[in-house]
Design a protein around this nucleic acid. Structure first.
Lengths: 156, 156
DNA sequence: CTTATTGCAAACGTTTTGCACGTTT
DNA sequence: AAACGTGCAAAACGTTTGCAATAAG
């Protein structure tokens, strides 16, 4: 029940966004919004596209996916993160800002938030007279699981 | 004079790297190394390529640039940073680890280092039993200069 | 003379775009 | 009806790769 209500809000917000900009509420946009909402965690335009192809009868072109994702990102309803050189990842937005720990072996993503780091970032921006719009912080390495796997191999 | 000596060290280090891996010291590689060294600040494979085309008579294929950059990055002689989705940036390596403040208007890059942030990152990695290989931290926003430009416009 | 390296062009994966057609307002 | 959105295929972008020719060890 709770989820239903949340989605309604999300959808309402989206509709307002469209109205404010004289954009149109189309079936495709609704399907994409729904798919984003029900997609747990992180997704790429590709995974979203596949997930829609699987779970909805409507076939939506990849170009429309890209266009809608940009729209939503600009409206701060989703957030994007860039890792390497191969594409962007998105995540359902609106939640509290957080940063990422990324396992380069299994590509697992762990989210974290640290008040002190946030404060230090603000301090540094201030020192340089910088007006911050956002920041990126990623810790790359090997997660516990993958470390264990590596050790197992060595001990054979 | 100081620079000359530094470059010699850099070149020596590169030659050792090659020898250790039974790789060859080619003219192209020397030119690329030189170009990287004399390139102030940050560069992309493209800018490096153009700079070589301009300042050296030898024409070097873009593929060779990419291959050499990977080589140098793996050997930790240069470092790469990824911003958006449009390609990598490199910087002359070996120097102390640092992070970046990026102006999204004029694309200026300011480097900074903060001991406390580093410590906090280690702390967080430890909490999650993560073995860190490196981390990325970027503050995005508008630099002082660009803020002033914007204000000027408003006050016309 | 063996092995690595190069340049080229083709392939790659992701993202963007032009355009004729469809849909929302 | 006007304006915006769509799907498609083609283009664009940075990057990687296969290959035959070339250069270094």
């Amino acid at each position: 029940m709770k989820k239903k209500v949340e989605y309604k809000n999300y959808l309402e917000k989206f509709k307002e966004l469209l109205k404010e900009n004289s954009l149109k509420f189309t079936n495709q946009r609704e399907v994409i919004l729904d798919a984003i909402f029900s997609h747990k965690g992180h997704f790429t335009p590709e995974t979203l596209h596949r997930s829609i192809a699987k779970n909805h009868k409507e076939k939506i072109g990849i170009a429309t996916i890209y266009r809608t994702l940009s729209l939503l990102e600009n409206a701060n309803m989703i957030t994007s993160i860039t890792f390497g050189v191969n594409g962007k990842m998105y995540e359902f937005g609106e939640k509290q800002h957080h940063d990422h720990i990324i396992c380069d072996r299994c590509e697992k993503i762990i989210e974290f938030f640290d008040e002190d780091i946030e404060k230090l970032q603000d301090k540094i921006a201030k020192i340089h007279n910088f007006k911050t719009t956002n920041h990126i912080m990623q810790i790359h390495g090997t997660c516990e699981e993958c470390q264990n796997k590596e050790n197992d191999k060595k001990n054979v």
